[in-house]
Design a binder for these strands. Structure first.
Length: 1077
RNA sequence: GGGCUUGUAGCUCAGUUGGCUAGAGCGCACCCCUGAUAAGGGUGAGGUCCGCGGUUCGAAUCCGCGCAGGCCCA
């Protein structure tokens, strides 16, 4: 290292001899530059992720990274992680970005821990949003009219084909986007809920539930289009203004005394007149001082608190008079105040708050409140239906009794905003009514047929009448019979069928349900249990009670949330009336010739019949259901051996299946995705249950619950051991993200990718506290970019100081144990008081922290530890301190080589720790460290493990077997104090730390054995001295060019600097390095 | 309206079972370096711990009532 540029010595010498004093003050700073070991690297400061990430991606694809890992790890312990399927529609958004990145952190960190992590990505393909979109497109194209002329199954097939193409298109798009996010998964073999294999496995689950006796058929109200005679989903409704008739109807009470008792009225008016004081009725009548009073004064109405002689009524209000034939109850709010009111000679009940509104509307003249009470007192009171006399039959209902028909029932949804506070309840024609009906075992009565006309169960004058025409007929009938209090036409917003633009109605149809409360399953002790009970048991608190430990929740509060949802869970309606889905393979039996016209035909759906159809669909796909006749679909079914059939059914099926009719229901898409534990984990032999499901917290009700329930029904075991949930994206003010934000385009994932790069976005995701709401803003990505650059630059600086370092092997010492070559220093031989030992100790701590955090899915802690290590431990401390030896020592000086060995090994480990978060950058740095030529695709950090994770299982050893001196923490306290003094010394003109020395107090020998040169390098000063008698650090002013000349090469004033044989002014170390005496 | 949940410097977050002067990083300001240079180092200023009330010797922390968000229901 004695080579000098030939032109330099003469010029240097002349200047130096003539102007010696100035040289010291202003030396030629570049004189020795070429003799330094300045850092060199091709690892760019600028990441250029937009170009370089796709190159990494391509390299990994050539390597076959996913397959290679499966092959290499097949004997390792498995981490079974199961992907929840996103919907195959549209481009991925910020939510997917976070979800997929978090999942990838799991996959990659578990992989780096040495596990085998098979991970199959999936897509949810069926369902209404796609079908709706396809239908709209067809409507716009004008191919809709043609469809209408076709046969149903033919029409369904055409729609299905379009839907499939749509799904395929978006799966391809999303898979590409997800891979661009550098996620590691089996993208060559994803699971698709529309794939024949998957469909067959879904039907297996249905068969299992049928076998357990958990599937039943019942009626339920749905939005119904009369024009198209089909059920509609929420997304297919358009709200338009429509004129309707609203009516106030008096339902006459059956037992007048019971009503008066409920209002606390005494037996007769005479009694009451004597006794003015003191009982409930007086109290109750007090509040009526306000609205009804003016009328009361001039009226001949009965005085308050007196029991009238006529029969009281319950006044209801409805905007759909055509549903009145189906009325079976009147609902009141138990806590609302109701009044018994005298209105123009009639006595009726309505909510106190609404008296004024109703009577003013009807222009009533005489209004007075007789008494008031609360809704709960009215519950159970009975009334006479204004025109229906025969009790309706319970169509296909599980629990139905006529006990409560035509009576007052409680309901929390009743308000006093509109109407009378008493709600006409027809369970066959409304969702809330239906819920109330189920709760009180009321008949779910729907006398309206699919074509919008009444069936034969209604009174003679309504039979066969179209319900819209029936509105007027009902009003007229009520008026004539004296039940009508008031009616008026009014405009309101009303749902319409998006295709026919006609108004829709609520109508009951037969649906398939899974019972969550039937105790037809067994718990772990063999006792009868319901799905709900098993589910609650699976998510119980604590660890005891059961053969399987309870599901773990991350965060823990998910357990409560899930439990609450399970407790209030109604039976699961698993059928839909659509084309794009997996058919429920049920068949309708023909009615016997002598059957009663109202008789429901029997339906075939048993475990065995489903399995028979299932085998056909497994090879041919669900289209076969539409294309093939029943006898072919049931080719392998033998009704005579089906234990689930009744003797009658078996008899009816004895003649073959040709006369069966296929039903048109499809499965709820949640049933499909909720069967993925069977269709993917079990069907592909990946192991059951999964170690982890990870989704947004909305899936506590969605996929998590709807996977848990069927899995318990079919296997008795929860499909997951741990549930991890993340929150939702909100804007920087914490508000819900709106799709119509003006800058929404910049938040498209593709756009973000182009602006920031994927590693930056992943770095951001890893910094999140994902359990809560996640605020997103472009500035956050910019901040993550800054932070990323800090890490990248740290890696770069480490690499650049290894330009002349040749490791003896590409395996770090942590993996191979000892140094084997003169270039490498044995880490075990490092002095505990050396800076190298200290930093390796810090690395060990980092790895413990990161591995521990990753194991707990606490990515933020890992992120923070990694950043702090790069930013503080390395960049600001260790790297800053070793710069002097790196640059100025002889290239092969032992302490330089020692630090290079440490740098090399630590960088190798650091790349591995960063790999789960920054797959591209970590691999790029790893390859640069190992000097891998671009043509080599086989060297890849993602095939390695964390240094401390070598060996088996979850045990994490310390990466490096060094034990730094315990006094280091005290030394750093001293250094901090010294730093403060240096800062103060700036006031006295010592602005450059190299112009300063520091005296450190060496009380109790804390500094004994420490290298004072290293401590000086840590402070950036020229000299450190230890003084046993000092109590606090002090600063030495070295700005004296005679006593402490500055070394021209290292710029240090270390006290050994003098003029050397080449005329240069150098310290001992630098003279040695340059090779001059 | 109900279940679960969040609210600590400008920003993102720590803050064990109540207990030193409430911490970190970023950002900002000032300074240094110019041999990591579209880099690097140092120092500093920033807080009604969402509000009100209570328990306590003592509350960011425990309890109650509010306010403002989020998810899922109704």
């Amino acid at each position: 290292m004695t080579t000098q540029p030939p032109t330099q010595p003469p010029t240097q010498t002349t200047t130096q001899t003539t102007t010696e004093p100035q040289t010291a003050a202003k030396p030629d700073k570049n004189r020795y530059r070429k003799t330094l070991n300045l850092p060199q690297t091709k690892f760019d400061m600028k990441a250029n992720l937009l170009q370089s990430e796709p190159q990494s991606l391509k390299r990994w694809q050539q390597l076959g990274l996913y397959a290679k890992l499966r092959e290499e790890r097949k004997a390792s312990p498995t981490f079974n992680f199961h992907d929840g399927p996103p919907y195959a529609n549209g481009s991925i958004h910020l939510g997917h970005l976070m979800n997929k990145c978090l999942k990838d952190f799991v996959v990659r960190s578990q992989t780096m821990l040495g596990k085998n992590v098979p991970y199959v990505p999936g897509w949810d393909c069926h369902g209404l949003p796609i079908e709706h979109k396809v239908m709209q497109a067809m409507q716009e194209k004008g191919s809709f009219a043609k469809l209408a002329t076709m046969e149903v199954s033919q029409r369904d097939m055409i729609v299905r084909r379009e839907c499939q193409q749509h799904a395929e298109k978006y799966i391809k798009l999303q898979a590409g986007q997800m891979q661009r996010l550098l996620t590691l998964a089996d993208y060559d073999n994803p699971y698709l809920t529309m794939a024949p294999q998957y469909e067959a496995s879904t039907l297996e689950v249905l068969a299992d539930l049928l076998k357990a006796g958990l599937v039943y058929r019942a009626v339920k109200p749905v939005h119904w289009s009369i024009a198209n005679e089909t059920a509609l989903a929420e997304a297919e409704l358009e709200y338009e203004d429509r004129e309707d008739t609203s009516v106030f109807v008096d339902f006459e009470a059956l037992d007048a005394d019971a009503v008066y008792d409920a209002f606390g009225l005494k037996q007769s008016a005479e009694d009451e007149a004597d006794d003015e004081s003191g009982d409930e009725s007086t109290e109750a009548s007090a509040p009526d001082a306000k609205p009804a009073d003016p009328y009361a004064k001039k009226s001949r109405a009965l005085p308050a608190g007196v029991r009238p002689h006529q029969k009281p009524c319950f006044m209801i209000w409805t905007t759909t008079p055509w549903t009145l034939p189906a009325n079976v109850a009147v609902a009141v709010h138990p806590e609302v105040e109701y009044a018994l009111v005298w209105i123009d000679g009639n006595v009726t009940v309505l909510a106190s708050k609404l008296i004024e509104k109703v009577t003013q509307l009807a222009r009533s003249e005489e209004v007075s409140v007789i008494a008031t009470t609360t809704g709960d007192k009215l519950v159970g009171l009975r009334y006479r239906h204004p025109f229906v006399t025969s009790t309706p039959k319970c169509a296909l209902q599980r629990a139905c009794s006529l006990e409560k028909i035509w009576s007052v029932v409680p309901a929390d949804y009743v308000t006093t905003e509109d109407g009378t506070g008493l709600v006409h309840t027809a369970p066959g024609h409304g969702t809330e009514d239906y819920q109330t009906g189920l709760k009180h075992a009321l008949p779910v009565y729907c006398p309206v047929k699919g074509d919008g006309t009444y069936d034969s169960t209604v009174p003679e004058w309504l039979r066969g009448v179209n319900i819209w025409k029936a509105n007027d007929a009902v009003v007229k009938h009520l008026r004539d019979s004296g039940h009508l209090f008031f009616d008026q036409k009014f405009m309101h917003s009303y749902p319409h069928d998006w295709r026919s633009k006609t108004p829709v109605i609520f109508r009951c149809t037969q649906q398939w349900f899974v019972s969550v409360t039937d105790e037809s399953l067994r718990d772990w002790q063999g006792r009868p249990a319901s799905m709900q009970q098993l589910a609650l048991h699976a998510v119980r608190e604590g660890t005891g009670g059961g053969d399987v430990p309870p599901v773990k929740f991350v965060p823990e509060w998910g357990r409560n949330r899930m439990r609450g949802m399970l407790e209030s869970r109604p039976d699961w309606c698993i059928s839909r009336q659509r084309a794009w889905g997996l058919p429920i393979p049920a068949f309708v039996l023909p009615l016997a010739a002598n059957a009663h016209p109202d008789e429901e035909p029997a339906v075939l759906l048993t475990s065995a019949s489903v399995r028979a159809v299932c085998e056909v669909l497994r090879s041919k796909g669900s289209d076969a259901w539409f294309a093939m006749p029943p006898e072919q679909l049931l080719a392998s079914y033998d009704a005579s051996k089906d234990p689930q059939l009744s003797p009658e059914m078996r008899h009816a099926l004895a003649g073959g299946y040709a006369s069966l009719k296929k039903t048109r229901d499809i499965l709820d898409v949640w049933f499909e995705s909720g069967s993925s534990w069977n269709s993917v984990l079990r069907a592909r032999g990946l192991g059951y249950p999964a170690d982890l499901y990870l989704e947004g917290s909305d899936q506590h009700r969605g996929w998590f619950q709807l996977s848990l329930l069927p899995a318990l029904g079919a296997t008795g075991q929860a499909p997951f051991r741990t549930l991890l949930t993340h929150g939702f994206m909100v804007d920087k003010d914490g508000r819900k993200l709106s799709k119509s934000r003006p800058d929404a385009a910049r938040y498209e994932v593709d756009s973000l990718t182009n602006e920031f790069g994927v590693d930056v976005m992943r770095w951001w995701v890893s910094s999140l506290v994902y359990e809560n709401d996640i605020k997103v803003d472009l500035t956050f990505f910019a901040t993550a970019g800054e932070s990323y650059r800090k890490v990248r630059n740290t890696l770069r600086f480490m690499l650049s100081n290894l330009f002349d370092f040749v490791p003896s092997t590409s395996t770090p010492q942590a993996e191979r144990g000892v140094a084997q070559d003169g270039h490498c220093v044995s880490l075990a031989s490092l002095s505990p008081t050396s800076l190298d030992a200290w930093v390796l100790g810090e690395y060990n701590a980092l790895e413990r922290t990161v591995v521990g955090a990753l194991t707990r899915y606490d990515f933020q802690t890992a992120h923070k530890a990694l950043f702090d290590f790069c930013n503080s431990t390395l960049s600001a401390t260790y790297l800053a301190a070793i710069k002097d030896r790196m640059y100025c020592d002889k290239p092969d000086a032992p302490r330089r080589r020692a630090s290079q060995t440490v740098l090399w090994d630590m960088l190798d480990g650091l790349c591995r720790l960063l790999a789960p978060f920054l797959p591209h950058t970590a691999d790029e740095a790893f390859r640069a460290l190992h000097k891998v030529p671009p043509t080599d695709t086989t060297t890849c950090v993602h095939l390695r493990t964390f240094l401390g994770a070598r060996g088996t299982g979850d045990e994490v050893a310390s990466a490096f077997g060094v034990k730094p001196d315990e006094r280091w923490s005290k030394v750093f306290v001293l250094l901090d104090a010294a730093q403060g003094k240096l800062e103060k010394a700036k006031a006295s003109g010592i602005e450059n730390p190299l112009d300063a020395g520091v005296v450190l107090p060496n009380a109790g020998g804390v500094l004994d054995g420490f290298d004072l040169v290293e401590l000086a390098d840590l402070l950036g000063v020229s000299i450190v001295r230890a003084d046993a008698s000092a109590t606090e650090p002090s600063v030495l002013d070295l700005r004296d060019d005679d006593k402490f000349p500055r070394c021209e090469r290292s710029w240090k004033r270390d006290g050994t600097v003098r003029v050397r044989s080449d005329g240069g002014v150098l310290s001992d170390r630098d003279a040695l390095a340059v090779g001059v005496a």
